[in-house]
Design a protein around this nucleic acid. Structure first.
Ligand code: SF4
Ligand code: SF4
Lengths: 144, 144
DNA sequence: ATTAAGATGCATTATTAAAGCATGTACTTA
DNA sequence: TAAGTACATGCTTTAATAATGCATCTTAAT
């Protein structure tokens, strides 16, 4: 019971982008260096972030990506749901569970999942910028 | 992002026990047969359920196990927390995340996890017996 | 044309959960 | 008290999935 690194990498990317001056593009290499994470994996995350519309990507020389909206408009529940994949938190099929038709548990777990995401819905990328100065300082010292 | 089969097996066991007449012991073999799940894995689950005090186990001939309390006294958050393991839903260490000291995200995720378990806390094993008759029927037909 | 960036697909490795196996220990009953 | 049955315990192996690596394609600026 843990979110994937994949998802966390996506959130880290959004955090990084949010600390940049508006309009400035970042590159995959830049983010890998900042967080010391593997380029290949981040590659896929960035791609999905683009597909999902959280960032705007630009190919080619001088390309890169930036936030597609204001940080306050990017909801954490949306991001995590997409990156994490929105499947049930319990697998009642494959293999099929014999009490499935009579089982209440799966409904309770599904409701719990909803409650979790409803809570996250009260936060946005902006909520993660409380320590913006400290974040910027971390990133700037890493560039040395 | 999904609970382990291990945890689900534990819940299934409790559901099964709750459908039995009070005082009646069940065995591991019985539950494996009822759910068509592997004995070796369930073995460990049963053992932990005993250690955690959700069931009372008895060794030896005519041994087995039964619920340690009334279904209405067995809270789902307690069971799932124990079986699932109560670790954070995001791993900020190993490897260490460079923005960890400035990051708000982990706190939000931790709060979301609390919200999830708080929700589960409003349910007990009794909540899972709404379709008790249907459950009993499923179990009885499987014994053939 | 060259170069630098993301896009895409496949292969490999690492991690963890799940399952298997062997043996120990407690308890009942003949 | 010996035999049998059930849970307890530890170790090994397999399966599933996430993470990572690699090669190549496409796009766009210069
Ligand atoms: S017990 Fe309920 S929740 Fe668990 S697998 Fe069966 S149907 Fe799904
Ligand atoms: S970004 Fe925040 S939540 Fe994610 S690993 Fe780093 S410290 Fe933890």
């Amino acid at each position: 019971m843990q979110i994937k690194k994949y998802t966390d990498y996506g959130l880290r990317t959004l955090i990084y982008l949010a600390t940049l001056p508006k309009g400035r593009l970042a590159t995959i290499n830049e983010i890998c260096a900042a967080y010391e994470i593997p380029r290949n994996h981040l590659n896929k995350v960035i791609h999905q972030l683009g597909k999902e519309g959280f960032i705007i990507t630009r190919r080619g020389k001088n390309g890169g990506f930036q936030l597609a909206a204001e940080p306050a408009e990017i909801r954490l529940d949306h991001v995590i749901r997409r990156l994490e994949g929105d499947t049930p938190w319990v697998n009642c099929h494959s293999p099929v569970c014999v009490i499935e038709p009579a089982c209440e548990l799966k409904h309770i777990l599904a409701a719990g999942k909803r409650v979790f995401y409803d809570y996250l819905a009260s936060y946005t990328l902006h909520s993660l910028l409380h320590n913006r100065n400290e974040l910027e300082q971390i990133f700037s010292t890493r560039e040395l």
